[in-house]
Design a protein around this nucleic acid. Structure first.
Lengths: 236, 236
DNA sequence: GTTTCGCATGATGTACACAACAATCTACTC
DNA sequence: GAGTAGATTGTTGTGTACATCATGCGAAAC
């Protein structure tokens, strides 16, 4: 059953996607994942040349990817210095979370689709993964399940602008969460994520999207409160 | 008084903006304006080489601008063909409008700032412009006042992600409105815009941001209804 | 006359060389 | 020994030549 579902979903391909377009999307998703999983932590300096060599392309197409990630707020290029993974200050983080909390309930109101058997399987699988995570906690595993759960949630709306907006905002905040947690914190957060996914699973099994959306909102609010109470280190 | 206020505001510069960053922003805003005012109507084919020559740069920095506009949904590059100004189908238009209607009320709820004398002057000026427009209606003049009014509205929230999201969605739909209107339609729409701006002005003068936001929502809803009733030509 | 193949043309996509710039190390001066 | 100017190194930004692709025209075959 594990092999049936991809852990980290990526952007959806267009219908008539060119070879260049597909390569762009794959590189974009790959680097975004590395940033989100803290393989590239905030403050890390990337080199266009090294990345281009690793992926077997020249700097030109790679730079397009880095520009996109810069527009999404994940990178910042400085001439003569390098391409830096961005940090985020507490004020901006708060603003993003506020907006995410307002968008969550729209999941059930803007062009929602019906819950089907595949969704139930998907959330049961996510719950299983989060359960395994509590038995073997890790920051990386937490991020993987967290990201996969997010994609499973936004998949319920067919409103494309809403999905794209939520995705953009999610990736701006997803990685900040982890960087200053102790092992004890990670263990606690993994249990919290397990309970959160369990709530989602129960709502999905009932087919109640409105409940699902508001549970999501509640957990988003809870995350924001916990982050605000914890000091954020401002350097990477 | 006319010279005090710029008609078409652009993106805000960063604090430490490099020369390349400023050039990128200026080119982006310029081309986006041309698309919004239908100087580049949907379906028009642009040439990177010609644009680069016009702006006095090489294709390389210009392509970065075009990629950004492509990510915003305003352009689409096809190898061997050219860079095409996108159209939008009625379904996508409806989805964007639905989301915009949900976001409007957030203007008064997410980090709003107080109304000051400058705002009142600004909206009185916009009302004057829209009044003049009814006496000499034009599709281009309508767009200019419409865009300027939008920027005056989103200026009331200090929540940056909200502003950026609203701006992105606005420019995806702003140009569609005009392309299939007769002279009679344009005349009617200019009067409608004048009444709309008058409502905004009155709310601003009262300092009532919540009323302003919901009036905005009502007018957005009205626009969507009128668009849905009118068939959209699907070719440029 | 019709169809089809091939070439010319012009577009975007890619690679690479160089310019502009910042940080660091080094050698020289005081 | 401390400080400063200059060289060096490595980075991103820009320009340009070429590759790749789609389109349209035209000539040749039927």
């Amino acid at each position: 059953m594990d092999q049936d579902l991809p852990l980290l979903p990526t952007s959806e391909p267009e219908d008539n996607e060119s070879a260049a377009g597909r390569r762009f999307r794959e590189l974009h998703d790959e680097i975004r994942t590395r940033i989100s999983l803290l393989d590239y932590p905030p403050g890390m300096r990337l080199s266009e040349g090294e990345l281009a060599e690793e992926f077997g392309v020249s700097r030109t197409p790679l730079r397009r990817v880095l520009f996109q990630l810069q527009a999404e707020g994940l990178l910042k290029s400085v001439q003569g210095v390098g391409t830096l993974v961005t940090d985020i200050d507490i004020g901006a983080l708060y603003q993003v979370y506020q907006l995410r909390m307002e968008l969550s309930p729209l999941l059930a109101r803007l062009s929602p689709r019906a819950v089907n058997q595949h969704d139930i399987k998907r959330f049961k699988w996510l719950h299983k993964k989060s359960q395994e995570l509590t038995e073997n906690p890790s920051a990386r595993g937490y991020s993987e399940v967290n990201i996969a759960t997010f994609h499973a949630l936004v998949d319920f709306t067919t409103n494309i602008p809403l999905r794209e907006t939520m995705e953009r905002l999610f990736y701006q905040t997803a990685r900040i969460w982890l960087k200053s947690l102790t092992d004890q914190d990670v263990k606690r957060e993994c249990k919290s994520l397990r309970d959160e996914v369990r709530d989602y699973r129960d709502a999905v099994c009932l087919g109640d999207l409105d409940a699902l959306a508001h549970i999501w909102r509640a957990h988003t609010s809870s995350s924001m409160t916990r982050i605000r109470q914890k000091p954020i280190s401002q350097e990477g």
